[in-house]
C-alpha cells in the first residue's frame, strides 16, 4: 500500500511541477498567449475572428491578470485540482477537456494494445534467447529487434508508411478511420478502425519488442545464476516447468518494474507516432496545439497524459504484490 501511496505523492508532485512550469515560463518570458493568438487569428482571417472579445474576457476573469501573481497561481492550481483545464484558445468556446477526452480513447486503445503485444512477444523472445542459446533463428532475429529498439517509434513509422502504404498500398497512410465511415459500434466501423491502427501499432510494436527482450534477457541471466535454478535442475524437473514456473516466473517480477520505468518513454514516443499517421489521439492534438500556440490545450494534453501514465503505473503497483509473495507478506522491501 505504501508503494501506491508513494506513487500517488509522486504523481501529484509531477502534475504540480508541470502546471507550475506552464504558469511561470510565459510570465517569465513576458509572453501573452492571448495577444499572440489574437495576432495570429487576425492574420489568418483578416480581422473577422469570432468571439475574440469573449475569449479575452474569459481569460481575464479566469486568471485575473490584475490580481497579484500568487493569487493567479493559487486560483490556477485550484482549477487543476478540480480537473478544470480551462478553455481552448483555438477552438473557443470549447473547453479543453472536451477535446482532450475525445482524443484520449484513441491513444489509450492504440498504445495499450501495442504495449501489451510488444511486452508479451519481447518478454518471451528475451527469455528464450537465454534458455535456448543454440537456436539459430533466435540468434538472428533477437539482435535485429534489439537494434530496432534503438530507433524512435516515429522514424520506424515513417519507413512503414513509405513501404506498406505508399509503395505497396496495403494499408492507409493516415487517420484513425476511413473518410465517410460511420463511427457506430458496427463490425464495419470496428474493422475499419483496426485496419487503420495496424501500421501505427506496428511501428510501436516493432521498436518496443527489443526493449522488453533486452531487459528480460538481463533478468534471465540473473535468474539462471540463482541457486534455485540449479536445485530445480538437480530435481530433474521438466524443461517446460523450469522455464515457465522457475525462470520466467522469477524474471518477470523485475520486468514489471522495467515496464513501470519505461512507460513514460513509450508514451512520449507514441505522441510522434500519432503525428506521423495523423492519428486522432492526444499526440496529434498536442501537435496541433503546439502549431496553433494554444497553451491551455498544450497543458491539457500534457496533464491528461501524465494522469494516464500515473493511473497505469498505479495499477501496476497494485499488481506487483500479486507477483511477488515477498512484498505481499512482508510489506515494504526497501532498498
Amino acid at each position: 500500500m505504501v508503494r501506491v501511496l508513494h506513487r500517488l505523492v509522486l504523481m501529484v508532485l509531477v502534475i504540480w511541477l508541470a502546471a507550475s512550469i506552464n504558469f511561470l515560463l510565459p510570465r517569465m518570458t513576458d509572453r501573452d498567449p492571448i495577444e499572440e493568438r489574437l495576432a495570429q487569428a487576425l492574420g489568418d482571417s483578416g480581422g473577422s475572428a469570432i468571439g475574440i472579445e469573449e475569449m479575452v474576457a474569459e481569460y481575464q476573469s479566469k486568471f485575473g491578470t490584475d490580481q497579484p501573481l500568487w493569487k493567479q497561481y493559487i486560483s490556477m492550481m485550484g482549477d487543476i485540482a478540480q480537473f478544470d483545464l480551462g478553455v481552448s484558445i483555438n477552438y473557443f468556446p470549447d473547453r479543453v477537456a472536451t477535446h482532450v477526452m475525445a482524443a484520449l480513447p484513441w491513444s489509450i486503445a492504440l498504445l495499450g494494445t501495442a504495449t501489451l503485444i510488444s511486452f508479451v512477444i519481447g518478454t518471451i523472445l528475451g527469455a528464450l534467447t537465454i534458455w535456448r542459446r543454440k537456436s539459430a533463428w533466435l540468434a538472428r532475429i533477437v539482435p535485429l529487434f534489439m537494434i530496432l529498439a534503438a530507433i524512435p517509434f516515429y522514424l520506424v513509422g515513417l519507413v512503414l508508411v513509405y513501404v506498406f502504404s505508399l509503395s505497396l498500398g496495403w494499408f492507409p497512410p493516415a487517420r484513425g478511420y476511413g473518410v465517410g465511415v460511420n463511427m457506430d459500434w458496427s463490425w464495419t466501423a470496428i474493422g475499419n478502425v483496426i485496419y487503420h491502427a495496424i501500421l501505427p501499432a506496428m511501428s510501436i510494436v516493432l521498436a518496443a519488442i527489443g526493449i522488453w527482450a533486452l531487459s528480460m534477457r538481463g533478468m534471465m541471466v540473473t535468474v539462471q545464476g540463482e541457486d534455485y535454478m540449479n536445485f530445480a535442475r538437480a530435481k530433474g524437473l521438466s524443461n517446460r516447468r523450469m522455464f515457465w514456473r522457475y525462470a520466467v516466473r522469477n524474471a518477470i517480477t523485475p520486468q514489471i518494474t522495467t515496464l513501470v520505468l519505461a512507460f513514460g518513454t513509450i508514451v512520449g514516443g507514441a505522441i510522434l507516432v500519432e503525428r506521423v499517421f495523423v492519428y486522432p489521439g492526444i499526440g496529434t492534438l498536442l501537435y496541433n496545439s503546439v502549431l496553433l500556440v494554444d497553451y491551455f490545450l498544450i497543458f491539457g494534453c500534457v496533464f491528461i497524459l501524465i494522469l494516464t501514465v500515473a493511473v497505469s503505473l498505479m495499477i501496476l503497483d497494485l499488481l506487483y504484490p500479486l507477483l511477488d509473495p515477498r512484498i505481499r507478506a512482508g510489506g515494504e522491501q526497501h532498498g
Binding site: 506513487r7 508541470a18 512550469i21 518570458t29 513514460g264 500534457v302
Partner: peptide, 24 residues
C-alpha cells in the same frame, strides 16, 4: 532521491514540450 523520482516519473518529452512550447 525524491527529486529524481519525481522527474523520473514523468514522460520526459512531455515536460520538455511544456518548457519548449512556453519558450516559443
Amino acid at each position: 532521491n525524491l527529486l529524481t523520482d519525481v522527474f523520473l516519473a514523468v514522460p520526459p518529452l512531455l515536460i520538455l514540450v511544456v518548457i519548449a512550447a512556453n519558450l516559443g
